[in-house]
């Protein structure tokens, strides 16, 4: 179980020892790790990993292949076979021409809507969550425990229960149907998990550092921006990934709280794929789905390493 390599990485992920050399000077074991590449355990491990990867990658393969074929080829062909004649027409159509109920300008409108929803939602929710987590971890105020408890309970109430009350709330605020209304909803629903994440991360940072900064005359904001934030890049990345993918993939809130011209990409994708008029254009549907999934995919690929690091740090210290 406790394989030295994994222990070593854990040490590297530790928010205290990993980045703040001042506080801990524990260095993991160094140098080459003795390894036997082809032990029986390794063969088993890699075999299973390979199998699982194929299982998960197969649908993606089918989608990519189908999206590059013309309709005639799809009708006759094997879904696993690569296209005999590669065409990007389905992608173009999905992006710019596919009909979604009222208009026929493809997914592009939904893409930009999603961008306009996701960017402010992510920025606002992370800003609010990080400051709240910091306050809860380090500046215990009267009732902070109760506040935190309520926040956590919020995480366990099913969304469906809250849909209608929120519709009424947004209507009263005059935000119903607007993008800012949806941004507000995403920000609020992102709070529990992200505040928890930030609170735990900040609470695991050495308290004496915080005390030293106070003795040095730094206040709430200065400590946050100059001491805490520079030490917490991984948790910001984790929070960003959770928020970007969560908000980008959201369907329910998008369909409930906005009007058709503000529909996010996911809702438009549904409208394209589920449209009943005419023939089913599988290639266009596949291309549209891939386009919609592209943003979370890119985010994962670009920040996978940091993501794992942040999650692990949070888990170890949680």
């Amino acid at each position: 179980m406790a394989d030295p390599a994994s222990l070593n990485t854990l040490a590297a992920l530790d928010p205290v020892h990993g980045r703040t050399g001042a506080v801990g000077d524990m260095a993991g074991p160094r140098g080459r790790r003795p390894r036997r590449a082809l032990s029986r355990g390794n063969i088993m491990l890699y075999g299973i990993l390979l199998l699982v990867s194929v299982y998960y990658l197969l649908p993606l393969w089918v989608m990519v292949m189908t999206s590059l074929k013309g309709m005639p080829e799809i009708r006759v062909g094997n879904i696993f076979a690569p296209p005999m004649e590669v065409t990007f027409q389905p992608w173009v159509k999905a992006w710019a021409e596919a009909c979604t109920g009222l208009n026929c300008d493809g997914l592009s409108r939904g893409f930009w809507n999603s961008v306009r929803i996701t960017v402010p939602s992510v920025v606002v929710s992370i800003a609010v969550a990080s400051v709240s987590g910091y306050a809860l971890a380090r500046w215990r105020f009267k009732g902070s425990e109760a506040f935190f408890a309520i926040l956590l309970i919020g995480a366990f109430i099913p969304y469906q229960v809250m849909l209608y009350p929120i519709v009424i709330l947004l209507r009263e605020l005059g935000l119903y149907g607007s993008l800012s209304g949806l941004v507000l909803v995403h920000t609020i629903f992102g709070m529990p998990i992200n505040v928890l994440l930030f609170r735990n991360y900040f609470a695991a940072m050495p308290e004496e550092l915080f005390k030293a900064a106070r003795v040095d005359g730094a206040g709430f904001w200065r400590i946050f921006f100059q001491i805490m934030m520079p030490m917490s890049l991984p948790i910001f990345v984790v929070s960003m990934i959770i928020q970007i993918t969560g908000i980008w993939n959201d369907f329910l809130f998008g369909v409930v709280f906005t009007v058709p011209e503000n529909y996010p990409m996911t809702v438009q994708l549904n409208n394209i794929v589920a449209s009943v008029q005419g023939v089913k254009e599988y290639n266009v549907n596949m291309a549209a789905t891939l386009l919609t999934g592209l943003v979370p995919l890119i985010v994962y690929f670009a920040s996978g390493k940091l993501f794992v690091r942040g999650i692990a740090a949070g888990a170890v210290k949680g």
Binding site: A22, V23, E208, L209, A212, V215, D216, G217, Q226
Partner: peptide, 17 residues
């Protein structure tokens, strides 16, 4: 703390990394 005319040295040094 900063208004009291005190300086503090901690066990863990608590240097800003």
């Amino acid at each position: 703390p900063s208004e009291r005319g005190i300086g503090m040295v901690f066990q863990s040094y608590a240097l800003y990394p």
